[in-house]
């Protein structure tokens, strides 16, 4: 099917979203909560576009990350109305998370130097995009969720402090777009979500690798013994080289 984006007729397949078609064709649309590897969310609304069905219908503002393509859609990604929405959204986010670098950069790109709204008291860097929650669910630990409602919502462990389901893989912290989740590695210790994990020492060099819980989790999901995950990649390569050496003969 054909979708028209910003005046260009573009070929699209039915399972695609408008965002995917736009990106595939080099049309930039800003996003924050979108993550290609995770379930769509539709919360940040930065990716909104104007859409008209069949060229004559009413102009609707839709999130391109969730809007499936339809034959004959006409889409505009950078109209004054859309740019204004994005600027206001970033202005709002800047009031929420004034210290988040990704938000500062995006806001600046949309002409917002500082927020025109009332800044949040005691701000953190979390924009509630839910990427961490979805990543954790994808990992299979499902240790995170949203607690509270509305402006009082926050990313949270069950009951606020039950980190027992966390495996300490760090996916949440490393995939957070604003760096809102703190994870510190000191020696073999990893602290995240208020819990201290021990990272397994590499059997060869002793360097800390993944956490014991992550190894057990991967073992459970793959059916392989937990030991197969414990070595650091450098020592593994070295072991591989020795294996090859044995095979080819000295």
């Amino acid at each position: 099917m054909i979708v028209n984006i910003n005046g260009r007729d573009l070929l699209a397949s039915p399972e695609e979203t408008l965002l995917q078609v736009a990106r595939r064709n080099g049309i930039p649309i800003p996003t924050l909560c979108e993550h290609a590897g995770l379930e769509p969310w539709g919360g940040c609304r930065l990716c909104v576009v104007e859409m008209t069905r069949g060229g004559t219908g009413p102009v609707r503002v839709v999130p391109s990350c969730l809007q499936p393509v339809e034959d004959g859609l006409r889409v505009e990604t950078h109209t004054p109305r859309i740019l204004r929405i994005r600027a206001v959204l970033l202005d709002l986010l800047l009031a929420r998370t004034p210290d988040a670098r990704r938000i500062q950069e995006l806001a600046l790109e949309h002409g917002v130097k500082r927020t025109s709204f009332v800044p949040r008291r005691d701000p953190d860097k979390c924009i509630l995009c839910n990427i961490c929650v979805r990543a954790c669910a994808a990992v299979g630990a499902d240790a995170l969720g949203t607690a509270g409602r509305g402006a009082a919502g926050r990313i949270s462990l069950p009951f606020g402090d039950d980190a027992s389901a966390c495996v300490g893989c760090g996916a949440c912290a490393l995939s957070c777009p604003t760096g809102a989740i703190e994870m510190t590695d000191r020696g073999s210790e990893r602290r995240i979500w208020g819990r201290t994990f021990q990272r397994l020492p590499c059997p060869s060099c002793g360097a800390p690798t993944l956490t014991r819980e992550h190894a057990a989790h991967l073992a459970g999901r793959s059916g392989l013994p937990a030991e197969s995950f414990g070595a650091c990649e450098r020592c593994r390569r070295e072991q591989a080289s020795r294996l090859f050496l044995d095979l080819v003969g000295k």
Partner: peptide
Amino acid sequence: ESCGKCVPCRE
């Protein structure tokens, strides 16, 4: 009563 999922409603 906002669920807080989307930025325009929550913020």
